[in-house]
């Protein structure tokens, strides 16, 4: 599927706002159900629910679909099928047909290979993982419950001990840009 079909397929939405409305409703119809399932599974496996919501509760797969449709980071919707290929190679079978444990193992294996030095595989996974991270940590729960969000700090403390239960600030904009 090319990027254009995905955009138009996602609803009556020619405008970004309309598209987003579709995405917020969970309307991912433009992706095949198998592609949707794949994005959902890898998102869930990467950032599961814990004492805070995970990727699924924050509609992170929907954000990934939107980002791919619009080319965020220069990425394209074709990456979903390429990721399916990478996962199949890692897991020895079609990812969506594997049981949960085998899926986790396949993604684990792909992830390790993709982030190894001089990685020979995993280009699609690195791209989609980066979109999962952006989607999750800029969602309300990811940004303000998993991490901390403070719009108006009011002061600057230049040297603070980092405690064991500390959470990073999603509102540290310099770090978001350069960190």
């Amino acid at each position: 599927m090319n990027r254009r079909t995905l955009v138009f397929g996602m609803g009556a939405a020619a405008s970004a706002g309309g598209l987003w409305a579709c995405v917020r409703r969970g309307d991912r119809a433009a992706l095949s159900s198998e592609q949707q399932e794949l994005l959902a599974r890898v998102s869930d496996l990467t950032i599961p629910a814990s004492d805070t919501p995970g990727a699924m509760e924050t509609q992170t797969p929907e954000f990934v679909a939107l980002a791919l449709a619009h080319g965020v980071g220069g990425h394209e919707p074709a990456l979903v099928d390429r990721l399916a290929g990478e996962l199949e190679q890692a897991g020895g079978g079609r990812f969506t047909r594997l049981d949960a444990a085998a899926q986790a193992s396949a993604l684990q294996k792909l992830d390790e290979a993709a982030f190894a030095q001089n990685a020979a595989t995993g280009e699609a996974w690195r791209a989609i993982k980066s979109l999962i991270a952006t989607g999750y940590y800029t969602s309300e729960a990811g940004a303000s419950r998993e991490l901390q969000y403070e719009l108006v700090p009011g002061r600057f403390d230049p040297d603070v001990p980092l405690t064991a239960d500390a959470r990073a600030f999603s509102s540290d904009w310099t770090s978001v840009d350069f960190g």
């Binding site: 995970g54 993709a114 190894a116 993982k129 991270a133």
Partner: peptide, 21 residues
Amino acid sequence: TYNRAKREAGIGADFKARMRK
């Protein structure tokens, strides 16, 4: 902060806990 989740290996609960800091 969380941008390193794009550069580092890891998935799952441990990964999420690591990215919290």
